[in-house]
């Protein structure tokens, strides 16, 4: 999906299915055949596809780090304000009133974790990206309704075999995706 100096005239070749099962089969077969630059499209998340593509994601770890950072910032802020920068006696309670500090600290933990989850997901997905070659294919708009698509990108080293492979997956249609 990255930009190239020497652009292939095609972004890739797209096969269309009317059911999810053949899409799952196509994903498995493509990986078995050694294709690497592949992607599946469906109107809803399909676990079989994600598993068949062998996808891994780093998001949980990122969120954990975000949460820990949030806790540190929350506690650090309160400690610095209440103990170092602006110590005032409130009803004889200690400057380091940790029972009270737990509450804002909890909130900053959640806030940082949530921000990491959403913006991390968008960043890893390369969004926002308003335009994409796939949007040039008219049928592709059905991917958000009831059609299933499988794409082999032109960057794939075995791209020359792509059309033949896709034809063997019994799709309802095959289309070229211009770049």
């Amino acid at each position: 999906m990255a930009h190239h100096d020497h652009k292939h005239p095609l972004h890739g070749i797209l096969a269309e299915f009317d059911r999810p099962e053949p899409l799952i089969e196509a994903c498995k077969a493509a990986r078995a055949a050694g294709f690497t630059k592949i992607e599946a499209f469906s109107p809803m998340p399909i676990h079989g596809v994600i598993e068949a593509l062998g996808l891994k994601n780093r998001l949980p770890l990122m969120v954990l780090c975000g949460g820990i950072a949030g806790a540190a910032v929350g506690f650090g802020l309160q400690y610095w304000v209440s103990v170092l920068e602006y110590p005032i006696n409130i009803g004889g309670r200690p400057y380091l009133s940790w029972p009270a500090f737990i509450v804002p600290m909890f909130e900053t933990t959640i806030l940082f974790a949530a921000l990491t989850a959403v913006f991390g997901m968008l960043a890893l997905n390369g969004l926002p990206r308003p335009h994409h070659p796939l949007f040039g294919v008219e049928r592709f708009s059905e991917a958000s309704r009831d059609r299933f698509f499988f794409l082999i990108e032109s960057e794939d080293p075995q791209f020359d075999k792509a059309r033949e492979f896709l034809a063997s997956c019994h799709p309802t249609a095959i289309e070229e995706v211009p770049n």
Partner: peptide
């Protein structure tokens, strides 16, 4: 934002 229903995105 350019959502295109890709499996890796899902």
């Amino acid at each position: 934002m350019g959502w295109r229903n890709a499996a890796s995105h899902w």
